[in-house]
Design a binder for these strands. Structure first.
Lengths: 217, 217
DNA sequence: ATTACTAACTTTCGAGTAT
DNA sequence: TATACTCGAAAGTTAGTAA
């Protein structure tokens, strides 16, 4: 179990703000975590190796700064906690830009076609709409309405895929769709969406159009 | 290093909302954490033993609910992350009710008198105003402007105390003060405040009056 | 006063397995 | 299928120190 995130969180509790250049000794940090100076020192080195913080060491103490990666990791925690604790207020909406993708969508949809049809209850248009969220969003696996198990076909293996029921909308229209979440890769930068029809044509969507995905709970 | 909070956070990522009665097997939870089914099972038992969740076990899977304690632990994380990531917006303000305390304040202030005077730059009124926050607030240790080391006097030992510069205010007045943070005890339910004068008299404060503490950064 | 190495100690993990 | 036990192995922790 990776404790990087926890260590980073504990470190953030010692810092006044995200832009605070702050100085802490390993023994002081150790007191905050109730561990020895040696362990605290190692933990700080691990955070640095993971790219979460940058430190400049000197004879007495070290000056620590959060990196962008560290801040984004803490921001993910914040987003996930919000989604969990403040959920009931409004359904989760993700703003995204239409993107081109690698054109592999069609190939995959064909491979998964029968299983998708069985799972979703309809035969999806054989292609995916790729969407690039405009800002960080919380983990949506938890809203998955089902999962297609991995399988092997023609000596090629296809991984498991979860699917989340969502509404894709723009100012003037709304369509039902499913977000596909490959279970292999973490930290997806583009979401792939399938629907009954070819939405690019039906709704005249072009690359870089901004649309909203609203997760159906 | 205690990982309860991290495990709870990871569990929350699997749940749809805080009120979700949700069912997960130990092997599924293990996959989320990248640990074995055995470890996941043990972690869930630890969370239950710590009072963070309640589970009902059956032949297949277990139904998990977050307890109030678990929710408040996650809420603490949320508050701390907010304070860290969204800091610049406005200074941290804590709304609190005036409380009676155990009357020990005066005794302590006397014991710490000389050290407090040296640290704060003035001789505080020999008593503390006890304040009970009306809602959870983020950790404020990080804003400490200094610390008085522990010491022993007349065979009695006095622990270390950090102090945070703050403004105590009501609708019609504002006073400089210091929040005292004993370093021994965690999870303080009442904050103790010292000031130059006896604020109860000067500002006619009574128990249950609502005041605001604003941390000076 | 620092940080951080090595070596010994302690805790945690997970394969095998019982229930 | 589950959960969860034992126990040998792996990982983490810290005391003693070096730098």
């Amino acid at each position: 179990m990776d404790r990087t995130a926890l260590t980073l969180y504990e470190l953030s509790k010692c810092m006044k703000s995200k832009s605070d250049d702050f100085s802490i000794s390993s023994s002081e940090f150790g007191k905050c975590l109730s561990v020895s100076q040696q362990t605290a020192s190692r933990l700080l080195n691990e955070l640095e190796a993971a790219g979460m913080i940058s430190c400049t060491r000197g004879g007495k103490g070290q000056v620590i700064n959060m990196t962008e990666k560290g801040l984004s990791s803490l921001n993910d925690m914040l987003l996930n906690l919000r989604a969990f604790l403040e959920c009931a207020k409004e359904p989760l909406a993700i703003e995204a830009k239409v993107a081109t993708g690698f054109g592999e969508g069609a190939y995959y949809i064909q491979a998964y076609a029968k299983k998708l049809e069985a799972a979703l209850g309809f035969a999806p248009y054989p292609g995916t709409l790729n969407l690039k969220p405009t800002k960080p969003y919380p983990a949506i696996d938890r809203f998955a309405s089902g999962e297609i198990a991995g399988f092997t076909e023609n000596n090629r293996s296809f991984g498991a895929v979860k699917y989340v029921l969502a509404k894709l909308s723009s100012k003037s229209w709304e369509e039902d769709c499913f977000i596909l979440l490959p279970q292999r890769t973490h930290h997806v930068v583009e979401l792939e969406v399938v629907a009954r029809e070819k939405l690019r044509d039906k709704r005249s969507i072009k690359d870089d159009d901004v649309v909203t995905l609203t997760i159906c709970v």
